[in-house]
Each structure stands twice: as C-alpha cells, then as structure tokens.
Design a protein around this nucleic acid. Structure first.
Lengths: 112, 112
DNA sequence: CGTATCTACAACCATTTGGTTGCACGTTAC
DNA sequence: GTAACGTGCAACCAAATGGTTGTAGATACG
C-alpha cells in the first residue's frame, strides 16, 4: 500500500526493465516457476549471453533474484517489485482523480 | 477486458516512456492540469526542443494528447493509458498468485 | 583424472536515446 | 505589416542499449 521511498533511479530501472518484450517474457516464466539461466536462454532465438544480459537488467531492477544451486543459477521473480511499480501507477491515477497537488508519492520519488 | 489487446510494441512504448524522470514529471503535471509545451519546458533546465521530444515520447505512448488552441499546443494526460499499464502489472501479480495457489495445492496433496 | 556444462564477463558493433543548435512556419500582438 | 511567440523538425553528438563472439572459472559426471 505505501509506496515506499523508491529513488528516481530505481523507478527508471523498473520501467526500463519492463520496456522489452523478451524481458517481460522472462519475467513471466520466472513468476510461474524457477528456471536456470540456460533453461531460460533455450527458449529464445538469441544467444545465451544476450539472455544473460536481459536477466541482469531484470536483476538490477529487483524484478528477479538469482540463487545458486550447484553450478546452476536459479532465477525467481520478486513480486514485491512488480507491486511497487503497480502502486506507483495507481498513485498516478489517484493524482488524476483528485487533480489537486497534495497527493504525491511519485513526486516524493522524483524529487528527493 | 482488462488486459485488452495491447501489442508488445505498445507495451514497450508505454514502459519506455515511463522510464525517465523528466517524462514522469511532465506526466504528473499533465495529470493535474493542462499546460502548453513552452509552459512545461520553462520548468526544466534543458532546452525547449529536449522537452518537446519528451512530450513526443509520451504522446507516442498514448500517455498524453495534445490539443491545438490558437498557437499553443495544450498537453493533457490520458489516464486510460496509465490504467492499461497498471492492469498489465496486476496481471503479472495474478500469475504469481496462481502459481502460489498451485504450489499450495501440490503441498497439500503431498501431505498425508 | 579429464571432459562436458553452466555461468560470467570482456570486446566489439549497429541502433537508439537524450541532449544540443539552428531554421522554418503559422499565429498573435502591436 | 512587422515583430514576437509557440511549435515542429532537421542535423549533429555522446552515451546507452541490444545484440554478437570469444574466453575463462566453477561445478558435475564418467
């Protein structure tokens, strides 16, 4: 509920990570189960390194986390980050409904 | 109904547009009132052309719309686009909850 | 042991992004 | 009519992005 203090950079990384179809697809798979990086990479036409970079972007945005399991790195989603993004958008809508300036979780995030 | 037909490209543009602090700031201003492009540009350090480009990015993402009013172009927010993005994130969370429910069911089935 | 597998990362390349300046054009004001 | 204003757009530039190949370090397997 509380849109806790997300720095503008964190918000940037969140939405930036979501602005790519391959990354959204990886996120979907991570939401429904755990997969190793190679298992994920096998699903796409691009190279393993490319998928690895996408996973890194999602990780920097805190949308996923990796857990070592032997020689594999298991990717699992972090629904809390998605919830933060959703709450942020919801606060934009609230801003619209109120149309008066005192409701600013986002402003707090954008103006430190 | 909720996750209506948004093409991947449209989703890309949506999140891409949101992945910049200046654009989010412009969006909040547009949500709370109408402003001309020059009025918006006056708020930021960057050049008018730079702000104009940000406005164009928001417009391509359907997050705002412009309406000519004499020689000015008035910028107003389109909350429906924000709602689409929010619903999209919510569907991701639903995916997660479904997975959790499935795992609960499996665990319950495993219990003797 | 040696070998195959999984991951990480560097170097490189093409395209996009976010910024600049300058110019053109329609509209308003004097 | 001329001057000022608001906008759109092109050309340019540095940095970031999304992809590639290649190399190297751990870890599992036969």
């Amino acid at each position: 509920m509380v849109v806790d203090t997300l720095s503008p950079d964190e918000v940037d990384r969140l939405f930036q990570a979501l602005a790519d179809g391959t990354r959204r697809d990886i996120l979907t798979r991570a939401l429904t189960g755990e997969h190793s990086v190679t298992a994920l990479a096998a699903r796409y036409e691009m190279s393993f390194a490319a998928v690895q970079k996408h996973v890194a972007v999602l990780e920097r945005a805190s949308l996923i986390a990796k857990a070592r399991h032997g020689r594999e790195q298991l990717v699992r989603a972090n629904p809390a980050a998605i919830e933060r993004a959703r709450a942020l958008l919801q606060s934009y809508e609230a801003l619209w409904r109120h149309r008066s300036a005192t409701m600013d979780a986002i402003l707090a995030a954008d103006r430190p």
